Measured scan of single mutants.
Amino acid sequence: KEMRNAYWEIALLPNLNNQQKRAFIRSLYDDPSQSANLLAEAKKLNDAQA
């Protein structure tokens, strides 16, 4: 469930391009235990690109 939530949050971040989203989501599938960390990194990048 945590992975699914992280997937959708990443997919809906407005300032990431599709390539960036795909990279984060690929990492999510590679290591679901890192969901919270990956989401935090994606949000950080999203904010930096705002």
Rank of each mutant, 00 (worst) to 15 (best):
L45S: 02
A6I: 10
N15D: 04
Y7V: 05
D30C: 13
Q49Y: 08
L28T: 02
Q34P: 01
L39K: 04
L12A: 12
A11L: 15
A36Y: 07
L38S: 03
N18H: 14
N15L: 03
L12W: 12
L28S: 02
Q20A: 03
N17W: 02
S35M: 12
N18A: 09
A42C: 02
D30L: 12
L39E: 02
P32L: 04
A42S: 03
A42I: 02
F24H: 03
L45V: 11
A50G: 12
R4I: 15
A42N: 00
D47Y: 07
R22A: 15
K44M: 12
D31N: 11
N18L: 13
A40G: 06
A48M: 07
A11E: 10
A23C: 09
A6Y: 10
Q19K: 10
P32N: 03
E41P: 00
L28W: 04
D30Y: 07
A42P: 00
K43A: 04
A6V: 05
E9I: 13
S33R: 08
L38H: 04
K1Y: 02
A42R: 00
E9T: 06
L16F: 01
S33Y: 06
Y7G: 13
L39A: 05
N18T: 10
A50S: 10
E9H: 07
N5V: 11
L45K: 04
A36E: 09
K1T: 09
A48H: 09
R4S: 14
Q34Y: 05
Y29T: 14
D47M: 08
R22Q: 15
L12G: 08
D30M: 11
R26W: 12
R26V: 10
S33V: 04
L16R: 00
Q49S: 06
P14T: 07
A42M: 01
S35R: 11
E9M: 09
L38K: 04
E2L: 04
N15R: 04
Y7P: 03
P14E: 09
L28A: 02
Y29A: 14
S27Y: 09
L39P: 01
E2M: 04
M3N: 10
A50Q: 09
R22T: 14
N18V: 13
K1S: 11
N17T: 12
N37D: 07
Q34T: 06
L28R: 00
Q34G: 05
Q49M: 10
N18E: 13
Q19N: 11
K21L: 03
W8H: 15
K43P: 00
A42Q: 00
K43M: 04
E41Y: 06
N46S: 06
R4L: 15
A23F: 06
N15K: 04
P14M: 05
N17C: 07
I25N: 02
A23E: 10
N15A: 05
E2Y: 01
Q49P: 03
W8M: 14
A40W: 06
N37Y: 10
Q34K: 09
E2S: 13
Q34E: 07
A36V: 12
I25M: 13
Q34W: 04
Q34C: 08
R4G: 13
